[in-house]
């Protein structure tokens, strides 16, 4: 993918942090997932306005010590996977009005604790 991508949390999911894990239930068939640390970082940062490339540069590369190109490639694949499960929305344009959901039991400004 060469175009700029934007990602937003789907308004059709249930989600909650449980310890260090993000628990997500998709509106599609009530399917339950737990997100791994990378997917959790991506999901939290998915505000519909920040390009995926920027999220990867700011959050993934610094947290996981990976090269930007490789990280972006992996993030795009992950975002597509999450979108296929109805957890994320992907667009080549900013996604307005997203997210409509709040992440209630986490502090947005707190550093994300991840392990590789």
């Amino acid at each position: 993918m060469s175009k700029k991508l934007y990602i937003a949390r789907s308004p059709r999911i249930a989600a909650r942090m449980l310890g260090e894990e993000m628990l997500v239930m998709s509106g599609q068939g009530s399917t339950l997932f737990t997100l791994n640390p990378t997917a959790t970082v991506l999901w939290r940062a998915a505000d519909g306005a920040t390009p995926l490339e920027e999220i990867v540069g700011r959050r993934i590369c610094t947290e996981f010590e990976v090269q930007p190109e490789e990280a972006l490639r992996d993030a795009e694949a992950l975002a597509e996977d999450l979108a296929n499960h109805g957890i994320l929305l992907i667009s080549e344009e900013p996604i307005s009005g997203q997210p409509t959901t709040q992440e209630a039991n986490s502090k947005p400004d707190a550093p994300v604790q991840v392990t590789r």
């Binding site: 308004p11 249930a14 989600a15 959901t101 709040q102």
Partner: peptide, 8 residues
């Protein structure tokens, strides 16, 4: 409740 992402 929806905006707070509960499973309802």
């Amino acid at each position: 409740a929806r905006s707070l992402t509960f499973c309802i």
